[in-house]
Design a protein around this nucleic acid. Structure first.
Lengths: 172, 172
DNA sequence: CCTAGTAGTTAAGCGGACTGAAGTATATTT
DNA sequence: AAATATACTTCAGTCCGCTTAACTACTAGG
């Protein structure tokens, strides 16, 4: 049996190709919508149900509470976000995507999905089945890893530090 | 034989997970380096050997020539880029990454690669082999698609529809 | 040589996203 | 009730990346 390149190298090449495409798509998305990175991040975070409060969101985006308030405000004015009072604690605002906001995120998702479809469309049924299985594995692994890491970085940072709390830094 | 979910859905879920992670990483990268989206795009484009001229680069990034000049200038001042005269046509500047610039891009690549390693590390040898094969397929497909699309859109890439105005009316 | 064209830079100005400080409203503690 | 803390907003100011217009330097063609 012939050995191909080591997995490590395969991963790297995949990452290179995907990263390039990915970044291009993000810039394109921001260009088209006129949204800032923080705003896109906010939409994504809400789409995947991660976060509710405004300051909390700001902390995740690495900006101060005032900045978060303004950023959210712009999104609300554009009809992408809803900002409602928390009945339990009327100081807090609950953020949620509007129909339009949700649709916008889904547009982005679908464009990437479409790209993946184009990648896979020419393969044989067996190959497509293999792709199916492998991506299922990887998706599950990614979700598990995400949850693990969420344990190490609880979203509620109690107390002080209005500092830019960088998420875990995988760089060197 | 049991049927899993259709490939289309698997792709979507993979895209969701990866996109989320990807975008977070990009924001993180820009935060850490203080680089703008255009600047990161420029570094990536140069890393993968796509482009040389300054206005040309600007066009790809969806900004005007002066903006491109300034953006490049900032990168040069940060020691990430080199801007040398083209000996053939001294109007033109040739852009290239410095050692430091190349290293920076590679940091980004490696951090994503590392994530993929973490995703795959727990799998069995058979599964890892399957992942290897599938990603090899996908990477090749992606490269082919990239080349195809380059043929259809020779100069215009995924930038905004914005055009660089050639009707500059330099009448004087 | 003179004109036109092209690549890049400089200059002036605009708008957006951020910051810190101060302000409002609600909640909690004493 | 008073003091303190929390969640968010408003305000004033700053910085940065973009734009257009005008400019420099080089190339190409008559």
């Amino acid at each position: 049996m012939e050995l191909g390149p080591p997995l490590s190298q395969v991963l790297r090449e995949w990452v290179e190709v995907f990263m390039r495409r990915s970044f291009r798509d993000f810039r394109h998305f921001m260009d088209q919508t006129g949204l800032s990175p923080s705003q896109v991040g906010t939409l994504l975070r809400l789409y995947f149900g991660d976060c509710v409060g405004i300051s909390d969101m700001g902390e995740h985006m690495g900006i101060t509470a005032p900045a978060a308030s303004q950023m959210v405000d712009r999104l609300v004015q554009q009809g992408l976000l809803e900002r409602t009072e928390d009945p339990e604690d009327r100081r807090c605002k609950q953020l949620s995507l509007t129909q339009q906001g949700r649709a916008l995120v889904e547009t982005g998702i679908r464009s990437r999905q479409q790209w993946m479809e184009e990648l896979t469309v020419a393969f044989s049924p067996e190959e497509r089945e293999a792709i199916n299985e492998v991506l299922t594995l990887l998706t599950r692994a990614a979700r598990e890893l995400e949850m693990e890491q969420a344990l190490f970085h609880p979203s509620r940072s109690a107390g002080s530090g209005r500092q830019r709390s960088t998420d875990h830094a995988p760089d060197g």
